[in-house]
Simulated assay, not measured.
Amino acid sequence: MNGLRTELHQPAYQKDFARLSSEWIITFFHLQRSDRAILNAPQGYIPKEDGQIFLSESFSRRSDIIKEPEP
């Protein structure tokens, strides 16, 4: 896809990750205290379980993709 770049999570993207993920959770669910802890320090939770966080950037907008571990 032209103009789309996907890369692994980096500390520079932390605020975008937290903001976008919070908006998604609030839209479809209820943001809980445990969600906030994960969103503020995802590298301490998600990769620990063999998952990875990818961010895609298109036209200066970032979106999150969290890849679940393979069974």
Score class of each variant (00 low, 15 high):
27 T>E: 07
63 S>Q: 15
51 G>W: 03
53 I>Y: 01
31 L>W: 01
59 F>W: 15
30 H>L: 15
44 G>T: 12
23 E>F: 01
2 N>H: 13
6 T>C: 11
50 D>G: 08
49 E>H: 06
16 D>G: 04
48 K>H: 07
46 I>D: 01
53 I>R: 04
61 R>Y: 00
13 Y>V: 00
22 S>I: 00
24 W>V: 11
67 K>I: 13
45 Y>S: 08
71 P>H: 14
57 E>D: 07
19 R>G: 13
21 S>N: 14
58 S>F: 03
20 L>Y: 13
37 A>E: 15
71 P>D: 09
54 F>Y: 15
61 R>D: 01
70 E>V: 14
36 R>I: 02
10 Q>R: 07
10 Q>C: 10
52 Q>W: 04
55 L>I: 06
61 R>P: 11
39 L>D: 01
56 S>W: 02
68 E>F: 10
14 Q>D: 11
6 T>P: 05
51 G>H: 00
50 D>W: 12
70 E>M: 08
18 A>M: 03
68 E>C: 15
42 P>A: 00
2 N>S: 11
17 F>G: 02
7 E>F: 08
64 D>Y: 06
49 E>Y: 09
54 F>S: 05
29 F>T: 09
3 G>C: 00
31 L>H: 05
63 S>Y: 07
41 A>K: 10
12 A>H: 09
18 A>F: 03
45 Y>Q: 03
66 I>Q: 11
71 P>C: 12
19 R>E: 13
1 M>V: 09
54 F>R: 09
32 Q>C: 09
55 L>F: 00
70 E>P: 12
41 A>P: 07
18 A>Q: 04
26 I>G: 10
61 R>E: 05
48 K>C: 05
26 I>E: 15
22 S>Y: 02
8 L>S: 11
27 T>F: 15
12 A>K: 04
11 P>H: 09
5 R>A: 06
1 M>F: 08
24 W>N: 13
3 G>S: 04
36 R>S: 15
57 E>V: 09
51 G>I: 00
67 K>L: 15
17 F>Y: 02
11 P>T: 00
21 S>D: 10
68 E>P: 07
58 S>R: 12
12 A>P: 01
71 P>Q: 10
69 P>L: 05
48 K>W: 10
57 E>F: 05
62 R>T: 05
10 Q>V: 08
31 L>Q: 13
43 Q>Y: 08
66 I>G: 11
18 A>Y: 00
55 L>K: 00
51 G>R: 00
68 E>I: 12
52 Q>T: 14
51 G>D: 08
34 S>T: 12
44 G>P: 02
53 I>N: 03
51 G>E: 08
9 H>W: 14
27 T>P: 05
33 R>W: 14
69 P>G: 01
49 E>D: 14
54 F>V: 01
46 I>L: 06
61 R>L: 01
4 L>V: 10
40 N>S: 10
67 K>E: 15
26 I>P: 03
39 L>C: 04
62 R>G: 03
14 Q>E: 14
43 Q>R: 06
10 Q>P: 01
46 I>V: 02
33 R>G: 13
31 L>F: 02
38 I>N: 07
49 E>I: 11
45 Y>V: 03
57 E>S: 08
30 H>Y: 12
67 K>V: 09
7 E>K: 04
40 N>Q: 07
63 S>C: 12
